[in-house]
Design a protein around this nucleic acid. Structure first.
Length: 103
DNA sequence: ATATTGACGGGCA
DNA sequence: GTGCCCGCCAATA
């Protein structure tokens, strides 16, 4: 019963606890395709359900996704800070401190 | 069916 | 540490 690669990615993203963030590569790895980070980005861009905390998924550098894609500047940053994630002045997060362990 | 795109990752300068 | 090139996977036109 394969519901699609996207659905699997959404399940993993929903597993990310508040106050933590994950990289596209990590989600792709948990999804079963460690090289499908790009496909994960597409899934996040779609974000069909609001239950999917796509704002917690960052790139390998801990940079937040393009603000326009989130409906406006500061949206993703505001959500992360509201959960306890410190966002730097360059819209970056310290992955060494906030990256999800995957458990 | 093929071609192009896209919220990416790793390696090297 | 940042920036550029190439490669990977899945979805869309």
């Amino acid at each position: 019963m394969e519901e699609g690669f996207f659905t699997r990615v959404y399940q993993i993203v929903e597993r990310i606890p508040p106050g933590k963030v994950a990289t596209y590569g990590q989600v792709a790895f948990l999804a079963g395709s460690p090289r499908a980070a790009r496909a994960v980005g597409e899934a996040m861009r779609r974000c069909p359900y609001f239950e999917v905390p796509c704002h917690r998924v960052l790139n390998r550098r801990g940079e937040l996704s393009p603000a326009p894609a989130f409906g406006g500047p500061g949206v993703q940053q505001g959500r992360l800070e509201a959960e306890g994630v410190a966002v730097g002045p360059d819209n970056r997060v310290d992955l060494t401190q906030f990256q999800w362990d995957g458990k």
